[in-house]
Amino acid sequence: MKFSKPATSIPDQIALLKKRSMIVEDEVAARHYMQFISYYRLRAYWLPFEVPAEEDGDHAFRAGTRFEDVLTLYIFDRELRLLVLDAIERVEIALRAQWAHYMAMTHGPHGYLDQSHYAHIDRHAKAVAELTKEFDRSRDTFAVHYREKYTSPELPPIWMAAEVMSFGLLSKFFGDLKRRAERQAIAKPFGVDEKVLTSFSHHMSHVRNICAHHGRLWNKRFTVKMTVPNYPAKLPVAMRGADERYLHNTLVMLDHLLSIIAPGSEWKQRVVDLIDGCPLADPHNMGFPEGWRERPAWRGTA
């Protein structure tokens, strides 16, 4: 089927929303937001308000749906995304530091390049090739200095490599370590099993990419899940009954890691305050289970 839909002007987009029963109280403001956010991006936030149209089989909106409601959800999701990115940044830096220090102290500055430490030689070769591209592109002072001063090895010591590789690539290096004992040693300071940390690293890389591209988090169904931990006890208790494809478990895990990395952080309270401040953003749409506030992982938040 050939795509044949014409482009639609912003005034016509607003007219279409009104035709479908959306209330637009301030058309000047609506035109402003449509211009600087776009119809297509906002569309994801009015989908929950849609109902089948009675006549033409298209979509209409529930009675009383306002453009301002859609904008409220959009702003909520933006603030949620910034909160999640704030936590991911600190967790990511901590994982980089722990991995690099363990590998350097155990196998030396360039031991991470030794294929004998990895379960899959082909995957390791691809990871090294990807790292080589990333390092060659880097204009960081330390990267330029290493390339100008040293001819061998071609790649830098692990503490430099950890700073230029993407987080997705870091999770591949860590997850493919052959010996479980080594993965467990890297995971131990974070208070979780290595399988959980490996799984969460892959999942967090996926969530990070969504955030980096300004994607929707609020009711996003993830394609990359994380493993539910068996310990500490508050984690499996918090995640019981939660939808594993949505954001709730990610938030619980980020808070657990932050409690170790940044003791005294008020991040969890900021998350709860954000949820409480937007009644339109039903926590159920983020995978939150019934009675989530009474569970130990969330207890203590106002």
Rank of each mutant, 00 (worst) to 15 (best):
R245L: 07
E154L: 15
G108N: 08
K18R: 07
A233G: 00
P189E: 05
V144Y: 09
E27H: 08
Y33A: 04
T65Y: 08
H145E: 15
A53T: 07
T132F: 02
M1T: 15
A100S: 15
E290Y: 09
T223Y: 13
H120R: 09
P279L: 01
V164M: 02
E134F: 02
K268I: 00
Y118T: 01
E92M: 10
H117C: 02
I93S: 09
I75V: 15
W159L: 03
D140G: 08
P156F: 03
G175K: 11
N285H: 14
Y74M: 14
A125K: 12
I275L: 06
E79V: 06
H202P: 00
R245H: 10
M160N: 03
Q13D: 10
T301V: 06
H124F: 01
N230K: 10
A302W: 13
S4T: 15
L235F: 04
R43V: 02
K5I: 13
R293K: 11
S201H: 05
K225G: 04
V24G: 02
E163I: 03
W292Y: 14
H203W: 08
H124E: 03
A181I: 08
L17S: 02
S259Q: 12
L82T: 13
P263S: 00
A119Q: 14
K149C: 09
P236V: 03
I10W: 11
P157D: 11
S152F: 12
Y45G: 11
F36H: 15
A125R: 11
A30D: 14
I158A: 13
D255A: 03
I88F: 11
S166M: 01
V24S: 04
M34F: 15
K133N: 00
F288L: 09
F3T: 15
I121R: 12
S152T: 14
A87S: 04
I93W: 13
F142W: 14
I261N: 01
Q13L: 05
Y33N: 10
S38H: 10
L82V: 08
V91R: 04
R147F: 06
H145Q: 14
V271G: 05
V51S: 06
D77G: 11
W292R: 05
I121L: 05
A94Y: 12
H214V: 06
I275A: 00
G168W: 10
G264S: 01
L71Q: 13
D77M: 09
R147A: 06
I23E: 13
F190P: 06
H117D: 11
Y231S: 01
M286Q: 12
R180T: 05
I37D: 06
V228S: 03
A187T: 07
F142S: 08
K133G: 00
M105V: 15
L274V: 06
K172F: 11
A63Q: 11
L274H: 06
L169N: 10
G215H: 04
R123C: 01
